[in-house]
Amino acid sequence: MTVADVVRSTAPNSEGYFEFTLGEFHFRRDEYFVYISWPTGSHMMSVDAFLRAMQRDVAWDFFYGTVNFDGVFGTVNHYGTVDIFAGRFNDSYRKAELDYSENHETPAIRETFKSILADWTNAAFDPFASPHETGAAFGIKNGDNDSAVTRRRIAARRMVAVPGDEEIRTDESGFPVNRMFLDVDQSEPVVEVEPGFEGEVAAFNLFAYLSRSDVTWNPSVVSQCKDSLFCPTTEEYILPIIHGNDRVEWFVQLSDEITWAVEDRDTGAMRSRVTMKAGDVAAMPADIRHQGYSPKRSMLLVWENNSSAIPDLIASGKLPTYPIEF
């Protein structure tokens, strides 16, 4: 499926935005809100929150497990197909039998979401930026911001700074130090390489690399040990989605502080609050969903096991939902 196959209205609405359809789901926006409808109900979200969530879902290619845009609407990744749902992980919707879900081939939902994001993001708004760093998402159609919503996803194959792999960030490559990390040491490690080993002796300043990230809440791979992925990210304000796990993931707080609201993945019932300060390490069990709050831009290492076998092992009960028995 390509962009040309996306189902959208023949003309923009009175606010200048196209409307979109995927299966039985229909999407439209006006100055302030997004309106989502499906055969058993409808829903409204602030366009600001919707576009921030949509941006992550698209950038992560639907990520691991569930991306809840809020307590009603979201997606579940099956790695080849994606469920789009309303009320599926909301106890009230389930009990009222008003929940609704459709499964689509990944390219169909990917292209639809990319088209919505491109059309509904105005020139002044960057969905990846913190509220202090961007203009408003609201108002009638006013240009676009394609360069912001189509940023390249960074995924080192071995490690950042290894020759031929992802490069470090610099002023010259368009990544100035973020205003909240101006005090982070920018010196790169001294690397002495013997002839013939230029491709294997490598190091970089991870903290400087993160201090130059131009996005928030967007894990990107900096090193890979087989299926073990280091996915650090810089966080400010609120994680725009509520992430529902299909596997255990781990957090290492590298700087500053984040508080996580942790809920039951399926019902949304509160399970805990996790406060992480620099150096803290915590697992996020495979049956929870979480949303983070970062008062100041912080550095977070998200550590993932990328094995494709895990979701089925968790779902079938062959693996526990928590990582350690002690």
């Binding site: 290492v252 803290d280 390490v281 915590a282 939902t321 350690i324 002690f326």
Partner: peptide, 8 residues
């Protein structure tokens, strides 16, 4: 214990 919370 499900969070295995510690500090490096």
């Amino acid at each position: 214990r499900h969070y295995a919370f510690s500090n490096l």
